[in-house]
């Protein structure tokens, strides 16, 4: 049965300066994590447009991870503070609209936190396996 186990697909939007670099560090440190994550590099968490997240979910992504610098560390001063509000609003909208907001994770992961990045991907993969596939994967009428 193991071969047919559901493998969630996670789309990750990572800020160039912290989380993307943290993911690189996980690589250079050879920290293993599940291959379920697909990374899109953006310059800052503050440039993650909710429309991207919505599109990923409606397309059928099982999870969306948004990674940025820790508060106070944004390369552009305040991108992550704005991202925080925006993602909070988005998640509330998803919740109210009857969508599963817990498929969207926002995490602060610095350039030195390769381990934290790997752990986050692992936890998210496990969480999504538990939760099951995004129903949008099958729904054509969206």
């Amino acid at each position: 049965m193991e071969t047919t186990e559901f493998e969630p697909k996670i789309v990750a939007f990572l800020c160039n300066w912290c989380t993307y670099t943290g993911a690189d560090l996980a690589g250079t440190s050879r920290i293993q994590y599940p291959p379920n994550v697909r990374i899109i590099r953006l310059m800052c968490s503050g440039s993650v447009d909710p429309t991207y997240v919505l599109k990923a979910l409606l397309d059928g992504a099982d999870g969306v991870l948004i990674g940025g610098c820790h508060p106070g560390d944004c390369h552009y001063q305040s991108g992550n503070y704005k991202a925080r509000r925006r993602i909070i609003a988005l998640k509330e909208i998803l919740k109210q609209a009857g969508m599963e907001e817990d498929r969207v994770w926002l995490r602060w992961i610095s350039a030195s936190e390769g381990q934290r990045f790997a752990d986050t991907v692992r936890k998210m993969t496990e969480f999504l396996k538990e939760k099951g596939p995004n129903p949008m994967k099958r729904e054509w009428a969206v």
Binding site: L54, L58, I93, A97, M99, W140, A141, V142
Partner: peptide, 25 residues
């Protein structure tokens, strides 16, 4: 091909969700 069928016009739910996102506050 991906979902077997595809609602047209495209992006209808995305439109409403994005509109919510843009102005519901």
């Amino acid at each position: 091909r991906r979902k077997g069928a595809f609602r047209l016009p495209a992006d209808t739910t995305l439109f409403h969700l994005t509109r919510l996102n843009h102005m519901v506050l």
